[in-house]
Amino acid sequence: MNTHTNELKRKAAQIRIDLLRMIHHAKTGHTGSSLSNADILTTLYYDVMKLDVTNPKWGDRDRFIASKGHAVESLYCILADKGFFPKEELQTFSQFGSRLIGHPNNKIPGVEMNTGALGHGLSVAVGMGLAGKMDGRSYRVFTLMGDGEQAEGSIWEAAMAASHYKLDNVVGIIDRNKLQISGSTEDVMGLEPLEDKWSSFGWHVVPVNGNDVAELSAALHAAPESSGKPTLLMAYTTKGKGVSFAENVPHWHHHVPSDAELAQAIEQLSKEAQVVIHE
């Protein structure tokens, strides 16, 4: 494993620690989903996307839309760590008057749009991708969707449009952890064969281990592999990843860790990635 991959793994572990502390302090949050997507967002923000922290509205920046907006805690922690806003502000998460509300808020530098009502992010990403093509811009648009979100009809309307307009500057990512708030995705609304469905809509589908930063990096840097086709990363993840007693446990979707659970989780994460914990 190379040094860069190790650094990404350490960064993802630190982001998980930060988001757990933030949720514990706020006494609210979507814990399992944010732990699930931490590797995806870490790879995007520290390895793949073109960004300028000093100029968040830079015209040629890559765009990211958190379509599964409820899993915002990892995104806030990354934006703070990157310097889009002071890290101390994380302690105001979900408090009265805070701009760090429970879903992405575009009053925050680095957040492209408010999200939370599932099924909307891909449509906006398609619009941004089409605008980029029309304006001759080189940016790419990334959007992270939940797998439970795939039951929304607007997802498939956007999928058709992206293929029709040959938007190879659009990269969709599905956090395929196979759990949603009400249980297994296959029990709530069966999705399989999900890869085949996206392929049939004209997308270039790339299955990856969504908790492996090396695989994610390679796939994201390679997109688009197929000219004229949008890319879909089917990122197979573990809900609650990194915290053994939270992994694949449905009630951790929005469980707030107790003092003891927080301490145990931080111990596990710090050992896994050899993170130095700064109290």
Rank of each mutant, 00 (worst) to 15 (best):
A222H: 05
R61I: 08
E149D: 09
L100T: 03
Y236A: 11
M1S: 09
S199P: 00
H221C: 04
N177F: 05
N6S: 13
I173M: 13
F64S: 06
M134Y: 10
W198A: 08
N37T: 14
V275K: 00
P207I: 13
H24V: 10
H251P: 11
L35K: 15
W203T: 05
G116K: 01
K68A: 05
S138G: 15
S200W: 09
G102S: 12
E7L: 14
H255I: 11
G29I: 11
L19M: 15
M160C: 05
S270W: 05
K178A: 14
V111Q: 11
E7N: 12
G153A: 10
F201Y: 14
A273W: 00
E267K: 15
D135Y: 07
N6Q: 12
K27L: 10
F201C: 07
W198S: 03
G69P: 03
Q91V: 00
F201R: 04
L90D: 02
G202V: 07
M145D: 05
H30W: 10
V48W: 10
H204Y: 07
K166I: 08
R21F: 13
A235E: 13
G119H: 06
Q268T: 12
I78R: 01
L194F: 06
S33I: 07
A260P: 00
A71P: 11
V170N: 02
E149W: 09
V111Y: 04
V243E: 09
E149H: 09
M22Q: 13
N2R: 01
Q180N: 01
D175H: 00
I277Q: 08
Q91Y: 02
H253S: 07
M22D: 13
L269E: 06
G172L: 13
P86G: 01
Q91D: 10
K68Y: 01
V48D: 04
L194T: 02
L79Q: 06
L20V: 12
G190V: 09
A66G: 10
V188T: 10
L8K: 05
A12N: 14
Q274A: 13
V126D: 00
N37C: 15
K178W: 10
R10L: 03
S199N: 07
G121S: 07
E267A: 14
N211K: 12
Y236P: 02
T238W: 07
F96G: 00
V206K: 05
R21V: 14
W58T: 03
